[in-house]
Design a protein around this nucleic acid. Structure first.
Lengths: 331, 331
DNA sequence: CTGAAAGCGCTAACAG
DNA sequence: CTGTTAGCGCTTTCAG
């Protein structure tokens, strides 16, 4: 910038004014500066500027997800990116893979890069440590799972209600033996869906013996094996409620391999790509990842702009999508 | 940092040494510094440091994709992220949506943030402008599509060969009327796949009248409509080659709605999530997005580390996955 | 082993 | 409308 100033024969501050489009620079001067910038192949350094700028903004948003390659996370990512892009903000993202021990180091790495705000899909269960980051000026919004031991904004879906709805739907087709298939119960979403399942089972008066719950299904292969063994035991269920997208895929594979996909009903939480083209189509409780991402981004930017209202809990409604697998009647 | 130094009763440079784990700080001193850092809730500023540091590294990698929510892009993203993470590098990503006019502004925004390297899935067709960025120290690796008017590394797949293989496969099941369904021919991958299709058609001696090519299919809905109208015309094809994942989805929907999914053969370029669970399963030429992302990241970090060998063109092999839709014989 | 001073590229504050 | 000076938080250089 100094070089540009010298070449254009102006003061360094004038160059700064041109670069930032500040008011009141004579057209001729501005033109000379522009030319010098081109000749010298000048690129400004945003970080150097924010070092001295009063607001200290880095125009960068952090995004910590479970896995950027999961379709749910990816859709959320894209939605947040679009909001950020609109505001000239870049997005720094990373995948925690549900590993609680990775969360704090990753947050630290982002803090070190002076992000203005953070959208966090947490892997850990104690977020008290984030109070220090917030005090240091980072705005944080939780997505998919609420904060624990910390007061902060979050954007979630009604996991419990959605799961309950799934059970009631299955029961309305005559099912009295419904199995629950879930991810690790350390995930708050997995727990909430289990609670919703139990709510439904309870209100319908189903026996717990007829409502086996299997959890700890961390990927589709584990889920597939679990479902297969479920049907090797006596008194197998007539319907399945799968509480996560990868688990649903495992369940589908298992039913297919057993030739039961048209005998046993299945409702999944979270939509699947091409879920409508399978036969039968997969009935799901869909979460609007785009909406979640958009709302979270809007929330975090509102905080960055100084909104200091009490922490909000935004609940995005789920959508029940009937496609066939959930409407198979009990034998 | 100054504050920490004061509180610990040491010089600022000593704090810097502790923060960077540099050699030769007395244990007792280091401990005092650590304590002061905790008490003051100190967080270093990476960008401020790189301002003065001799290597000027920002420890940040840029990633410009077509769309972070597309499964192919997302898998590539994750693979690159893993390589970066290993090296303590953060990833700044954005989606170009195949809009050539967005490419240069986005690159500029990243340049302004002093990224060390860039992995680019280009949307434009003239990359000469990047020479200035490279001269300014940015290492660039192209993915999925090669650079144009610029000499730079790239990691691509054998689009032409894969497409040709698809045609030959279909012909081996007796097909003589095979239609090509493609994305915009401005995309080099779409063009290469078309060329491969024509290679196959030519070497098999099929007439061009029997080998209609339809392109400009930018999303699954457009693709679906195009396929439907194909079968409303006289002499419809007995097999389809779809050159892109979303186009394949559209083709599947069209065949389903016409009740032809077991009559008309289909081979798609790029795999689909759950493609094996559809009926019939979808035969595809799969691209290894993870491998592409990993290799591109390794390439860019090698360049950052000073590798100045001639530009490389890395070709990742495609994988032919037989699942049923491509093995339907001609009537 | 430790510290003081200079300066990275930029913007704030103020003076012309 | 334009320029000068100081200083953001850090690392470098060099001197203890």
């Amino acid at each position: 910038m100094k070089d540009v100033a010298k070449r254009a024969g102006v003061g360094i501050k004038t160059v700064s004014r041109v670069v930032n489009g500040e008011s009141y620079v004579a057209e001729a001067t501005a033109a000379r500066v522009e030319r010098a910038m081109n000749e010298l192949n000048y690129r400004r350094d945003l970080a150097a500027g924010s070092l001295r700028r009063s607001d200290r903004r880095s125009l960068t948003l952090g995004l910590l997800l479970a896995n950027v390659a999961n379709p749910f996370d990816a859709a959320l990512h894209r939605a947040a990116e679009d909001v950020a892009q609109e505001l000239g903000v870049s997005v720094l993202s990373a995948s925690l893979d549900e590993r609680a021990d990775r969360e704090q180091p990753f947050v630290h790495a982002l803090a070190t890069r002076r992000i203005d705000g953070l959208i966090l899909m947490p892997a850990s269960h104690d977020h008290a440590y984030l109070a220090a980051e917030i005090a240091a000026g980072m705005s944080i919004v939780f997505v998919d799972r609420p904060p624990e031991r910390l007061d902060a904004d979050c954007v979630v879906v009604d996991n419990r209600g959605g799961a309950r709805q799934a059970v009631e739907h299955l029961a309305s087709f005559g099912h009295r033996r419904i199995a629950f298939l879930g991810d690790r119960p350390t995930l708050s979403t997995a727990r909430a869906r289990l609670e919703g399942f139990l709510d439904g089972v309870g209100s319908l008066g189903l026996s717990s013996a007829a409502s086996p719950t299997i959890d700890g299904l961390t990927n589709e292969y584990v889920a597939e094996a679990a479902v297969r063994s479920l049907f090797e035991a006596s008194d197998p269920p007539t319907a399945l409620f799968s509480a996560q997208n990868l688990v649903t895929v495992g369940a589908i594979r298992a039913l297919r391999s057993l030739g039961l996909e048209r005998e046993v009903a299945l409702v999944g939480f979270d939509d699947l790509p091409l879920g409508d083209l399978l036969q039968p189509g997969i009935t799901v409780i869909a979460q609007d990842a785009i909406q979640i991402g958009r709302l979270a981004a809007e929330r975090v930017f509102a905080r960055i702009e100084g909104d200091d209202s009490p922490a909000q809990r935004v609940v995005v409604p789920t959508r029940f999508i009937v496609r066939g697998s959930g409407e198979i009647p009990a034998a």
